[in-house]
Structure formats: structure tokens, C-alpha cells
Design a protein around this nucleic acid. Structure first.
Lengths: 153, 153
DNA sequence: GTTTAAAAAGAATAATATTCTATGATTGAT
DNA sequence: ATCAATCATAGAATATTATTCTTTTTAAAC
């Protein structure tokens, strides 16, 4: 696994900010021509540094205005139960992220819904439907104060 | 604020999966021609449903293999202290996300670093340097079991 | 100083986006 | 029921951009 150089890092930062930047725009920004930019991006994609191109959606416009972090503990902790929970959680669209964590609980879920009523439905009909749930503690997001990337802002 | 129709939603899902899909590819997928696809995407961008085009990076390749959720409580809770903390946290690159939450603590931070040593440095030299910190409790991510979008998988 | 390899430049071609105009369908009013 | 108006889509022409190939420059090693 070879490392990336400062030029690669600058390209990644620019594409993170705007994935539609043309090779020419990037080239101007970095005082290069389009060819090396094109070759570098090709390599960064081939080697997996860039996993994919995607879009960022506006939660509010799509009527998903409530974020809740939910700490879940299981009753049984044998491996089969842990992996079963991870499997079950895949099928619940409200659960956007799921982490197996150390500390107070077994899993941390990031849940995104439209409002409190939909969250109630999630807890009562989706989460409770999963077997082996011991306890669940909800932390409602009041403000999303920061949302950045692993490479700078 | 007008609503989006099922065709718009399908376009958003396709672009979420692959932001580099050409209008023609999307058109073939949805049994349309390139023009309506182009017009719809232009509208979805203009109206803010699509916030931006971007790339997804590979954490491990970039040597960011440790995710930690950190519950932070402040000593003082007057508004000025809350907003000051939110401001301070912006300058710390290791903090990728920051939420003001209800429940046990004031803030939930998502921290991404290369390893435990870098996390130690974050706690001792970055977080502790911020004023008004009452307590901080770390939850280390063992497994990232799910990572999806607000529109389906 | 010469050789070698890597990176970048330049130019030509292929693919795509973008715009303009035209057609068909739907809606609302008379 | 008919007409006008609006909207979504289609088709075609143009402008951008990506991509590839070849050449030139740069840097390092001997």
C-alpha cells in the first residue's frame, strides 16, 4: 500500500468539497494540466482511496428532521446474538448508522425520522420487533453543531 | 416548498449510489430520455434537495482506523458557554461530528483518529485545551455494522 | 555526463452535458 | 365539449469535458 502525496491530498479535499469539479478546474487550482489530474484521480479510485462519488441530500427538504442516537443493550451476548442484531438492523431504514461500541451499551444507533411520531413508531414497531433487545436509551439531537470530513473541513 | 415525485426519488437514490452516473445511464434505468433527467436534476439542485456532489473516502487507506464517540458535559450551561463550545470544536479536525443532545450529557462527539495513541493526544491536548469541559466519556467503536442513507440503502 | 524512470504537457478524439425547439398530454375555464 | 395554457418529454445541434496517445521535461542513479 503506497502512500499519497500532498497533491493527491489536495485533489481529495477539492473533490470532497465539490465532486463535480472538472479536471480543468482542479488543474487550474493546483497549477497543473488536466492530464496529471486525470491520471491521479484514476489511481486514487483504482487504489480505493476514493470509494465512490455520491451526493449529499438535504434532510429537512426530504422531511427527515429528527436525529436520535439510541443506545441499545442486548439480553444475551453470545456471538450469534450480536451478529443477529447487526443483521436485523440492516432491514430497518430508519437506522442510518449502527456501531458496536465499548462502554455502557452494546450498540449505538443513529436514527433519522421525520418527527417524534415517526420515532415512536420506530421504537414501538421496528426496534421492539427485533429479538433479544435488553434496553434502549434515546438521546435526541437538539443541534447538529458540526459535520465535516476526515480530511480537514 | 413543492414535493418531489417518485421519479425524482429514484434519481436521488441512483445518484446517492453513484454520483457519476450520466444522464443517459439514469434515463435508461428509468425508461426516459436524457432531457427530463437533466431538467429534474437541475431542479433538485436548484431547490436544494441535492446539497452537493462529493466523494466518499476510505478511512483505513487514509490511516483513520479508530472511531470514538465521546460524551461531553460542560461545567457551566449558560447559552454563551454552549455556543462557545460549539465554536471551539470546529477548530479540532479530529472531531468529525458534534451534536448537542438530550439525556446524560450535553454533547456527543464523533471523533476519528488513526489509533489509540492519536486518541490519547486528542483527549490530552485538544479536548482538554477547550475551556469549561466538565466530563468526557469515551465509547470506542468495535464494529461499524451499518452505514446507509436517509433514502433507502 | 549519460541513462533510466516518472511526471507532466500537448494535441487529437470520443463521450457527455447542455440548450433550443417541437410535440404530446393534462388541466382548468368557458 | 372545446379551447387555451401549462407541463413533461422528445429530438437535434452545439459546447464542454473526459480520455487516450505521444512527446517533453524533470529527477535520480550510476
Amino acid at each position: 500500500m503506497i502512500d499519497i502525496d500532498p497533491v493527491d491530498l489536495k485533489i481529495l479535499k477539492l473533490l470532497k468539497k465539490d465532486g463535480m469539479m472538472t479536471n480543468r478546474q482542479i488543474a487550474v487550482e493546483l497549477n497543473l494540466t488536466t492530464t496529471p489530474i486525470h491520471e491521479r484521480i484514476k489511481r486514487l479510485r483504482r487504489d480505493g482511496f476514493i470509494e465512490k462519488y455520491t451526493i449529499e441530500l438535504n434532510r429537512k427538504k426530504l422531511n427527515k428532521n429528527l436525529i436520535v442516537f439510541c443506545n441499545v443493550s442486548l439480553k444475551e451476548h453470545a456471538q450469534q446474538f450480536l451478529t443477529q442484531f447487526e443483521k436485523d438492523v440492516q432491514t430497518v431504514p430508519e437506522v442510518v448508522e449502527c456501531y458496536c461500541v465499548s462502554g455502557g451499551s452494546d450498540f449505538l444507533l443513529k436514527v433519522i425520522v421525520s418527527d417524534m411520531e415517526e420515532y415512536k413508531d420506530f421504537i414501538l414497531n421496528k426496534l421492539a420487533a427485533i429479538s433479544n433487545i435488553g434496553s434502549a436509551q434515546s438521546h435526541f439531537v437538539i443541534t447538529e453543531a458540526k459535520h465535516s470530513s476526515i480530511i480537514g473541513e
